[in-house]
Each structure stands twice: as structure tokens, then as C-alpha cells.
Design a protein around this nucleic acid. Structure first.
Lengths: 173, 173
DNA sequence: CTTGACATGTTACAACATAACATTTCATAC
DNA sequence: GTATGAAATGTTATGTTGTAACATGTCAAG
């Protein structure tokens, strides 16, 4: 019996039809839960930043977050946004995409493990995977070069299923 | 008979003992060859930028390249460096590491294919791999999310063999 | 020796990110 | 309730990375 590659994909690309309200709620709920568990404070400001990021499945830049905060109250300094982002990243509530200098909400429930990101060049939506097979392939490749992995960054640009189907190219949810 | 994973690793981590002079020469020679073949002009300025990048196996930032140019003649404007970098990247002579905002010389001979980068957090040296197994794992993961891959970015931070052996932590060659 | 494409120069600015220090907030111990 | 200390936020300034727009120079082909 052939050994099956256990593709442990926890989440994938956001689907056209998913209930996005629930999606945002669950991001915020997970944040509450994780901060509670770790004794960290999810302040109003941090929650606001997370909400803005989770509001779409696209990656959003720090200064765009800042603009959105400005339009619903007073305009914070850039450092304020970056501090909130640092906090959210420390607690694995958001991820930074190095190839875009931008941020997405974590869709994996605050796990520490690395993830792989699929970035649609058409609609801008970002999917998050956690493929064991990819992780193992990278570990093996690194090992063969006597390299000890600390943190792999995997960001795949391409075109998502919806956009491939002649579909949206509308900016994502 | 089990199908073997053919690890097609073309190059790996730069070795402590390798002949770096030859290494630089071969980068420049490859550049000459490729530009010749493609009818592109490897001007003095572009060659200088490539030489500066190939001078070490660490990633170097655009403004550091600029400083090195300044110290051997007059100081060009940033755009000049970025133009040279754009040219070199178009021709796969250098790679940009998104996680560092910095550039390394390509050690794979101007191939178009993607690559995986191993970035040592101790010595700063960068290794370049081309693992089919990694490529295939990513293709498979993407396919399972109905995602068509255009360009994967894989940048693995960690610790190289030399540094792991209680060795250098000297800044790399 | 012209001409046109490519390369470079010049100036200014946009976008992303952090340093350093002052002040406020909030849970806890008293 | 209030003192207290750690964590969070505010304020000001600056550092780092990257590009836009337009002018000028260079070089090979005709």
C-alpha cells in the first residue's frame, strides 16, 4: 500500500461564496481567546487594526490601515499602527507578506507553525495553507545543505480559481 | 519499485573553503555569455553592480551597493542602482530577497526557473537551491486549492552548517 | 554622419519603517 | 480607594527603500 502524502491543509483560498461576516467574527473571536489565554491585552486599538485587516482577504499595507483608522476617528502616527501589527504578529493573529510589505489576518487559529501563502495577482486575495508536504520538502532540501531551518517564508504569486474561471478580477472580499 | 524523489539541487550553501575569486569570475563570465546570447548590453555600470553583489555571498541592499560605487568614483543616484538591478534581475543574474530587501548574485547560470534561498542568520551568507521536490510540493499544494502558480518565493532563514559547527559567525565571504 | 533605440543623468518625491523620549492606562497590592 | 509599576499609547523626528518624470548622452546599424 503506497504511503499517502498527508496534505494537512487547514485552510486554503477564500471562496467566492463564503460567509465573510462569520469570517471576521471568527478572527476577532480567536484573537479574544488567544489573548485571554496568554494574558495579553487585546486593546481597542489592536482590535481595530485586526478588524481592518480581517475585513478583506487581501493584504493591506500599514499606511492603508492608518488611512482607515483616520477615517473613523483621529489619525494615529505610523508607529502606532506598527506597534499594533507587532503585537498581532507576536501572537500569530496576523502575518506579514514580505513580498508585498503588507499584512493579512491569520486564518489558522493562532498556531505558531509557519504557513504558505497564495497571493492572487488578479483579485489580490490571499490564501493560507499549511502543507506538511511543503514543510517536509523544505526541511529535506535544507538538511541536504546542512542548513538548520528556523523560519521558512513561502509566498506564491499566481491566479486563484475564481479568477482563472474567467471570473471576478474584482477586488476581493 | 518506489519512485525516487530526485533532489535536483544545482547549487547549495557557499562552503567556507571555496575559491571565491573563481566564484566572482564565473558570475561575471556567465553574465557576459548571457548578455551576448540575448543581445543585451552588459555595460560597465551594470558589470560594476554585479561585481559588487557577487563580491560576497551575503545579500546586499541597494543603498549599500550605492555606497560601494561612491567609494570608487562618483556617487550615482539611487535610481541608477535600481536600473542596473532591474536589468540584472530581468536576465536572472541577480535575485532579490523580499524578506531582506536585498540582492544576491545568481549561482545557477541565468536559468529562468525559480529557486529557494537559504539565509544564514549568523553569517549572512545566502545559499541557492533548486529542489524539484520543493517545487512539486508547492505545485501540488497550490493545485489542491485550485491555484495556478506563477512565481513561488521561498526564503528560508536559519543557520548554515559552518555556523552550526560552532564556527564563524564572521561575516561571510 | 544621421537616426533611433537604449542607457544614463537630474531632481524630486512616494512608500515603508523605526528611534527616542513623554505621557497615559490599568490590573494588582496595599 | 489609592499607590505603584508594567504595559500601552502619544509625540516628534528621522531612517530606509524604491520610483516618477523628464533631460541628456552613447552607440551600432543603415
Amino acid at each position: 500500500m503506497p504511503k499517502r502524502d498527508d496534505e494537512a491543509i487547514e485552510t486554503a483560498f477564500p471562496d467566492e461564496t463564503h460567509d465573510h461576516r462569520a469570517c471576521v467574527r471568527s478572527s476577532l473571536a480567536a484573537a479574544e481567546r488567544i489573548c485571554e489565554a496568554r494574558g495579553r491585552r487585546l486593546t481597542a486599538q489592536r482590535r481595530q487594526v485586526l478588524r481592518i485587516i480581517a475585513d478583506s482577504h487581501r493584504a493591506i499595507g500599514a499606511y492603508d490601515i492608518l488611512e482607515r483608522m483616520a477615517s473613523s476617528g483621529r489619525r494615529p502616527a505610523p508607529i502606532t499602527v506598527y506597534r499594533a501589527l507587532d503585537f498581532l504578529m507576536e501572537n500569530a493573529l496576523v502575518h506579514r507578506l514580505a513580498s508585498l510589505n503588507a499584512f493579512v489576518a491569520c486564518r489558522g487559529g493562532g498556531h505558531e507553525h509557519g504557513a504558505q501563502f497564495l497571493i492572487c495577482a488578479e483579485c489580490g486575495n490571499v490564501g493560507e495553507l499549511a502543507s506538511d508536504r511543503v514543510d517536509r520538502a523544505i526541511d529535506a532540501a535544507a538538511a541536504s545543505a546542512s542548513f538548520r531551518v528556523v523560519q521558512p517564508i513561502i509566498e506564491v504569486t499566481g491566479v486563484c480559481g475564481d479568477c482563472n474561471d474567467g471570473a471576478p478580477a474584482e477586488q476581493g472580499r
